[in-house]
């Protein structure tokens, strides 16, 4: 579903991603861990075209973006990729001038050109799916962080993505609100959604992930199934990371 081949990204002379190769198969739940500044968010942003890549290539659901292709071609490809992948942001990024329902149906109306009543039907169904059927008329400012993030997930799902990208979806949340977002993500995983998740939620990673990737300094350090990753890490860097995490 997602493959990156030698993907690299630098800002001026600062190398954020150094030749990254990852593979996310259909229905995989891949969790990317790593200290801050490791490049994990940048990787996700590259995959959704929010950052232009500097080298290598990647493929999402059959659409290829190659750093050697012209800028125009790359932009065209990323726009097509965005239609097939949903993105959930750390800061939710809900549209503040639209209600919960308005946020969910915006893409259906503007991008998919669905008639309003049809979009509303889909939107209500999705709000119900994330447990917010009774909040459709609420503006984001009146919703808690957890509710906002669930609306944001519904907004992404509305576009019927083949894969969902989560960029630290619970990092901006108060601790007591993390659970409601994670449980929505769990349900999505159970329904067979392909997911690439940048997160610090170890319990979620351990229980839900099919594969864990540890990144540090723009490199992939280790890549393994959760059990092996947590019980028997091969790399010293991984062991150090896990020790740091456990001290918290």
């Amino acid at each position: 579903m997602i493959t990156t081949t030698g993907l690299s990204k630098h800002f001026q002379d600062h190398e954020v991603l150094k030749s990254i190769n990852i593979e996310v198969a259909a229905q995989d739940i891949v969790v990317v861990l790593g200290p801050s500044g490791s490049g994990k968010s940048t990787l996700l942003r590259c995959l959704n075209g929010l950052e232009d890549i500097s080298g290598g290539s990647f493929e999402v659901n059959g659409i290829v973006v190659d750093a050697t292709a012209s800028r125009r071609l790359r932009q065209q490809a990323t726009r097509n990729i965005r239609k097939q992948s949903g993105m959930v942001f750390q800061q939710f990024n809900l549209y503040p001038h639209k209600t919960a329902l308005g946020n969910v149906i915006e893409g259906l109306i503007t991008v998919k050109k669905l008639p309003k009543d049809q979009a509303v039907t889909i939107g209500r169904k999705l709000l119900d799916r994330v447990g917010l059927a009774d909040r459709e008329e609420y503006y984001p400012s009146r919703l808690s962080g957890g509710q906002q993030q669930r609306v944001a997930i519904a907004r992404s799902l509305a576009m019927e993505p083949a894969v969902m990208l989560f960029d630290e979806p619970t990092s901006a949340l108060d601790p007591e609100l993390v659970g409601e977002v994670l449980s929505v993500m769990r349900e999505l995983a159970q329904e067979g959604m392909t997911m690439l998740v940048v997160s610090h939620e170890m319990k979620f990673a351990r229980e839900v992930a099919t594969k864990i990737i540890l990144m540090a300094d723009g490199n992939i350090i280790e890549e393994a199934a959760p059990q092996r990753f947590f019980e028997d890490p091969k790399e010293e860097r991984t062991r150090r990371f896990l020790r740091q995490i456990n001290e918290i």
Partner: peptide, 27 residues
């Protein structure tokens, strides 16, 4: 208007013009 608004709009597949008209300008 925060940059995240544009990113959210782009990530749902909007063109720059659609994002400007529907998301950025109203705010």
């Amino acid at each position: 208007v925060p940059k995240g608004q544009l990113e959210a709009a782009y990530s749902t597949g909007m063109t720059p013009w659609q994002a400007m008209r529907r998301i950025v300008l109203p705010q």
